[in-house]
Deep mutational scan, measured.
Amino acid sequence: DEETLERIAKELKEKGWTLIVNGKLITDAREALKWLLEEEERR
């Protein structure tokens, strides 16, 4: 759910983690959240 996604995005940002999505590096939590939401919609 959205709360979980926001928590994940926040944790990613705090830890300075990066996500690699389709070979693209995502360092911004907002971008990561946007991607996660798009993935949820596809299901």
Rank of each mutant, 00 (worst) to 15 (best):
residue 1 D to P: 10
residue 1 D to H: 13
residue 1 D to N: 10
residue 1 D to M: 13
residue 2 E to C: 15
residue 2 E to F: 12
residue 2 E to L: 12
residue 3 E to L: 14
residue 3 E to N: 11
residue 3 E to F: 14
residue 3 E to C: 15
residue 3 E to K: 09
residue 4 T to V: 10
residue 4 T to W: 15
residue 4 T to Q: 07
residue 4 T to R: 13
residue 4 T to N: 05
residue 4 T to P: 04
residue 4 T to E: 06
residue 4 T to D: 07
residue 5 L to A: 03
residue 5 L to V: 05
residue 5 L to C: 14
residue 5 L to F: 07
residue 5 L to P: 01
residue 5 L to K: 03
residue 5 L to D: 02
residue 5 L to W: 13
residue 6 E to P: 03
residue 6 E to K: 11
residue 6 E to G: 09
residue 6 E to T: 09
residue 6 E to W: 13
residue 6 E to A: 12
residue 6 E to H: 11
residue 6 E to M: 14
residue 6 E to V: 11
residue 7 R to V: 03
residue 7 R to Y: 04
residue 7 R to L: 09
residue 7 R to C: 14
residue 7 R to G: 03
residue 7 R to M: 08
residue 7 R to P: 01
residue 7 R to A: 08
residue 7 R to K: 06
residue 7 R to F: 07
residue 7 R to S: 04
residue 8 I to W: 11
residue 8 I to S: 01
residue 8 I to L: 12
residue 8 I to T: 01
residue 8 I to V: 05
residue 9 A to G: 03
residue 9 A to V: 13
residue 9 A to S: 06
residue 9 A to N: 05
residue 9 A to L: 15
residue 9 A to M: 15
residue 9 A to E: 06
residue 9 A to Q: 08
residue 9 A to Y: 14
residue 10 K to S: 09
residue 10 K to L: 11
residue 10 K to Q: 10
residue 10 K to P: 01
residue 10 K to I: 07
residue 10 K to A: 09
residue 11 E to K: 14
residue 11 E to D: 06
residue 11 E to T: 11
residue 11 E to R: 12
residue 11 E to A: 14
residue 11 E to N: 07
residue 11 E to C: 15
residue 12 L to T: 02
residue 12 L to A: 03
residue 12 L to Y: 05
residue 12 L to P: 00
residue 12 L to V: 03
residue 12 L to I: 10
residue 12 L to R: 01
residue 13 K to D: 04
residue 13 K to R: 12
residue 13 K to L: 14
residue 13 K to H: 10
residue 13 K to G: 11
residue 14 E to P: 02
residue 14 E to C: 15
residue 14 E to N: 10
residue 14 E to A: 08
residue 15 K to S: 05
residue 15 K to I: 08
residue 15 K to P: 02
residue 15 K to W: 14
residue 15 K to Y: 12
residue 15 K to R: 12
residue 16 G to E: 03
residue 16 G to A: 11
residue 17 W to F: 09
residue 17 W to L: 04
residue 17 W to R: 01
residue 17 W to Q: 00
residue 17 W to V: 02
residue 17 W to M: 02
residue 17 W to E: 00
residue 17 W to P: 00
residue 17 W to Y: 07
residue 18 T to N: 04
residue 18 T to D: 03
residue 18 T to Y: 10
residue 18 T to L: 12
residue 18 T to E: 04
residue 18 T to A: 10
residue 18 T to S: 09
residue 18 T to W: 12
residue 19 L to V: 04
residue 19 L to A: 02
residue 19 L to M: 05
residue 19 L to I: 09
residue 19 L to P: 01
residue 19 L to E: 00
residue 20 I to V: 07
residue 20 I to A: 02
residue 20 I to Q: 01
residue 20 I to Y: 09
residue 20 I to H: 02
residue 20 I to T: 04
residue 21 V to N: 02
residue 21 V to F: 11
residue 21 V to S: 05
residue 21 V to Y: 06
residue 21 V to C: 15
residue 22 N to E: 06
residue 22 N to R: 06
residue 22 N to H: 04
residue 22 N to I: 15
residue 22 N to G: 08
residue 22 N to T: 06
residue 23 G to S: 03
residue 23 G to L: 13
residue 23 G to I: 13
residue 23 G to D: 04
residue 23 G to H: 02
residue 23 G to T: 03
residue 23 G to W: 15
residue 23 G to M: 09
residue 24 K to S: 06
residue 24 K to I: 12
residue 24 K to P: 02
residue 24 K to F: 12
residue 25 L to F: 10
residue 25 L to T: 06
residue 25 L to D: 02
residue 25 L to H: 05
residue 25 L to G: 02
residue 25 L to C: 10
residue 25 L to M: 07
residue 26 I to P: 02
residue 26 I to H: 01
residue 26 I to L: 07
residue 26 I to V: 07
residue 27 T to I: 12
residue 27 T to Y: 10
residue 27 T to V: 08
residue 27 T to D: 06
residue 27 T to R: 11
residue 28 D to Y: 08
residue 28 D to G: 07
residue 28 D to S: 08
residue 28 D to W: 15
residue 28 D to N: 08
residue 28 D to C: 15
residue 29 A to W: 14
residue 29 A to G: 02
residue 29 A to K: 02
residue 29 A to T: 06
residue 29 A to R: 02
residue 29 A to H: 03
residue 29 A to V: 14
residue 30 R to H: 06
residue 30 R to Y: 13
residue 30 R to E: 06
residue 30 R to T: 08
residue 30 R to G: 04
residue 30 R to L: 13
residue 30 R to S: 04
residue 30 R to P: 03
residue 31 E to H: 04
residue 31 E to T: 05
residue 31 E to Q: 10
residue 31 E to P: 00
residue 31 E to K: 10
residue 31 E to F: 07
residue 31 E to G: 04
residue 32 A to Q: 03
residue 32 A to D: 00
residue 32 A to I: 14
residue 32 A to C: 14
residue 32 A to F: 14
residue 33 L to S: 00
residue 33 L to W: 11
residue 33 L to E: 00
residue 33 L to V: 05
residue 33 L to F: 08
residue 33 L to Q: 00
residue 33 L to I: 07
residue 34 K to A: 08
residue 34 K to D: 01
residue 34 K to E: 06
residue 34 K to W: 07
residue 34 K to H: 03
residue 34 K to M: 12
residue 35 W to T: 00
residue 35 W to Y: 07
residue 35 W to V: 02
residue 35 W to A: 02
residue 35 W to S: 01
residue 35 W to E: 00
residue 36 L to D: 00
residue 36 L to H: 01
residue 36 L to W: 07
residue 36 L to E: 00
residue 36 L to Y: 06
residue 36 L to C: 15
residue 37 L to K: 06
residue 37 L to M: 07
residue 37 L to F: 07
residue 37 L to P: 00
residue 37 L to Y: 04
residue 37 L to R: 11
residue 37 L to V: 04
residue 37 L to N: 02
residue 37 L to G: 02
residue 38 E to K: 08
residue 38 E to I: 08
residue 38 E to L: 10
residue 38 E to W: 12
residue 38 E to N: 06
residue 39 E to M: 14
residue 39 E to G: 04
residue 39 E to Y: 14
residue 39 E to D: 10
residue 39 E to H: 10
residue 39 E to W: 15
residue 39 E to Q: 11
residue 39 E to A: 09
residue 39 E to T: 08
residue 40 E to A: 12
residue 40 E to W: 15
residue 41 E to M: 13
residue 41 E to C: 15
residue 41 E to K: 12
residue 41 E to T: 09
residue 41 E to S: 10
residue 41 E to N: 10
residue 42 R to Q: 05
residue 42 R to G: 05
residue 42 R to E: 03
residue 43 R to A: 10
residue 43 R to K: 07
residue 43 R to E: 05
residue 43 R to D: 05
residue 43 R to V: 06
residue 43 R to H: 07
residue 43 R to P: 07
residue 43 R to N: 08
residue 43 R to L: 09
